[in-house]
């Protein structure tokens, strides 16, 4: 069987297309690279959707944490503490248990039945947890940036008579993003890394449709040889990380385009590990 046939059979296996049975013997390098790459589709999906949706919640949470009112500040502080203070692994377990407890037939709301069974599937349930998790981490970053918006900027906005939404939209938010961007880049990278935990923490992979690490583990279980599948996963993630750095670097340049070149902050990959 040529490598092209293997790619045809397994390139979209993680979505349920192509060959139904996973390879069982005579594992070739091509099969491993293709199948693990197919699993990467899920990692990219979880990462992108959680990041984009989490961004908006994070902005709201950061504003709430910086608010003067206790009723806004306290819930935001607790939300951030709970999601940043506990392991993502445990969060996945708890979320799965809660989703399983939801009534199978759905919940009646105003005479309409809201289906709930899809929340136990990884594509929705795990995504929801990742969304809340990244929102909490990003909110802390945005909050820190919001605190360090230069006093002169806000005073200038006041002097122009800007208030409320206009002041936020034109002055606070762009500066906050600009200051937070290097740290937010790190958050994005490690969110993608965290997506590998999904299928290790309660959420089952239906019909062997899993992510990159799920397939890597499948191969290790079958061949007892960790020296090929895991480095393949590592290679894919290094590529993904490089792509993210390029993308976020371009955004960073755009956010800082009004500054003199020597004042522009550089993106720096800082180590951070498990969440």
């Amino acid at each position: 069987m040529s490598c092209w046939e293997t790619i045809g059979d397994y390139a979209f296996r993680s979505l349920g297309f192509g060959e139904r049975l996973l390879p069982r013997s005579g594992f070739t390098l091509c099969q491993q690279v293709t199948l693990i790459g197919s699993g990467m589709i899920w990692n990219v999906y979880f990462g992108i959707v959680a990041l984009v949706t989490g961004f908006f919640l994070a902005t709201g949470l950061a504003m709430a944490k910086a608010a003067r009112s206790r009723w806004l500040r306290k819930p935001a502080e607790w939300f951030i503490f709970i999601f940043r203070g506990s392991p993502l692994f445990i969060q996945f377990f708890i979320a799965y248990q809660i989703f399983v407890m939801l009534p199978r037939s759905g919940i009646e709301v105003f005479g309409m039945t809201v289906a709930t069974s899809w929340m136990t599937k990884a594509w929705a349930g795990a995504l929801f947890v990742l969304f809340l998790n990244t929102a909490a981490y990003s909110a802390e970053i945005f909050y820190g940036a919001l605190q360090s918006v230069p006093k002169g900027d806000t005073e200038a906005a006041d002097a122009y008579g800007m208030t409320g939404w206009v002041k936020f939209r034109k002055v606070l938010w762009p500066t906050m993003l600009r200051l937070a961007w290097p740290a937010y880049t790190n958050e994005a990278i490690f969110l993608f890394h965290a997506t590998t935990l999904v299928y290790f923490s309660g959420f089952p992979a239906f019909q062997q449709k899993g992510d990159a690490l799920y397939y890597a583990q499948y191969f290790v279980d079958k061949t007892f040889n960790p020296f090929i599948p895991y480095p393949i996963v590592a290679g894919y993630f290094i590529l993904l990380t490089l792509a993210l750095i390029l993308l976020f670097g371009a955004m960073n340049r755009r956010l800082n385009r009004h500054l003199a070149p020597n004042q522009r902050p550089k993106l720096k990959l800082r180590p951070q590990l498990v969440r």
Partner: peptide
């Protein structure tokens, strides 16, 4: 640049 869990496994 590599997920920690890959290293652990």
């Amino acid at each position: 640049g590599v997920p920690d869990i890959v290293f652990f496994l």
